[in-house]
Each structure stands twice: as C-alpha cells, then as structure tokens.
C-alpha cells in the first residue's frame, strides 16, 4: 500500500502520524515536493496557516499540492490545514490578504471562535459516525461553504465545522489532538484506504 503523506513543515505533525500509525498505515513526512510522489492521501496539520503557506511556497510545495488536489488526491486539512484548502480566507478582526491553496469552495474565517482563552472542547454529531466525537477547537476557524458541492458533516450554532467536497475534507477542530481515531478512520474508509464498515 502506498504511504499516506503528512505535511511536515510546522505544526501538529507527530500527532497526525500517531493517528495514521495506530490505524496501521504507512506514513511519510512531506518536506519537499519529491516526497509527494506516490502518496495515497495527504494530511495538512494544524499549525499557523500564515507560516505554513509561506513555507510551502518557499520549499516548492504549493503548486504540486494544488495540482494533486485538483487531480483528485484525497486531502484532509485540520484547523490551519483547512484554512490552506479554502478558496477564501478572512479574519474576524482584520482585513486579511492571506494566500491559500484555493482547492475547496469554502471561505474560512480565522479565529472566529475568539482567542485562546475561548478555545474549547465540545462533543459533535458527525455524519457517518455513530458516537459523538470530541471536537477540540483551538483558535479555530469557521468554515463557510461557497458551493452546493460542499457537504456539511458537522456544525455548531455559529456554523459548519466539518466539510467535505469530493476528495477534500476540512475540519476546523483537531481530531489529531484526541485519542479518538474514528474521524481519521472515516476519512480513510471513504477513500478506500481502509476497508469500510458494512
């Protein structure tokens, strides 16, 4: 089985690797575009989205990842990773001209839930999961769909927090910071990397 890639320039990299490891998947950390060759899926971790996009540009990853996403490579972005996937990025307090991969028809609103003291954990009902999932929101973005191709898999009173558009999954919370592998499993099942449940 070809390995799963985890973008490893900054952020919660080892946490995603621990998730894929516990699901029995080979994992490769991606720092250069050569390492993208042959991966079966890509995880974009949480971190600082401004840092991540500038480092992706610097190390020549932005264009290859965008092209792989357009060609159908399954990509899961969590928090900053979801901001990277979005077609539009805005910020609650400031005008914002942040670059992104512009793959999913989604506007991410950075820091929509407030600063760190407002970070929270709350159980979520996620379409496709039987049990409530512990959603850990850390300076989280809100994810607004801009197209009817975008499916909402979970939402809070403020708006959507888990979206899917074809091969692209965007989560405003951090499944990789919990011990619950069910959301990662759901992603890998939906793309046929893990066998689906009957």
């Amino acid at each position: 089985m070809s390995p799963v890639g985890v973008l490893a320039l900054q952020g919660g990299v080892s946490e995603h690797c621990a998730m894929t490891g516990s699901l029995g998947l080979d994992t490769i950390q991606i720092r250069t575009h050569e390492q993208l060759e042959g991966i079966s899926a890509l995880l974009l971790p949480g971190g600082e989205s401004t840092t991540l996009i500038s480092l992706m540009d610097r190390w020549g990853l932005t264009t290859p990842v965008r092209e792989l996403g357009q060609a159908g490579l399954p990509i899961l972005g969590t928090c900053a990773g979801a901001v990277l996937l979005s077609s539009e990025v805005s910020e609650v307090e400031h005008a914002c001209t942040q670059e992104s991969l512009r793959l999913a028809s989604v506007r991410s609103v950075r820091n929509r839930f407030g600063r760190q003291t407002r970070s929270f954990i709350r159980y979520l009902n996620i379409k496709g999961l039987d049990a409530p999932f512990p959603g850990l929101f850390i300076r989280a973005p809100l994810l607004e769909p801009l197209s009817d191709k975008v499916e909402i898999l979970a939402e809070l009173s403020e708006g959507p927090v888990l979206l899917r558009q074809g091969n692209l999954w965007l989560s405003s919370f951090h499944p990789e910071l919990t011990t619950d592998t069910s959301l990662h499993r759901l992603f890998f099942e939906s793309i046929g990397i893990l066998p689906g449940r009957i």
Binding site: G11, G12, S14, G46, E48, I121, Y123, I138, T178
Partner: peptide
Amino acid sequence: EKRIEGSWDAKSGLARMLKGG
C-alpha cells in the same frame, strides 16, 4: 452540548500547534 473552555487539552494543544515554529 456543553463547551468546556480552558481545559488542559486546549491549553497544551495550542503549544502543540506551535511546534516546528
């Protein structure tokens, strides 16, 4: 339905997001 703010996971979690930075 309850939101829990300021939990240990949220506090240590932000630091994890700063790794490699």
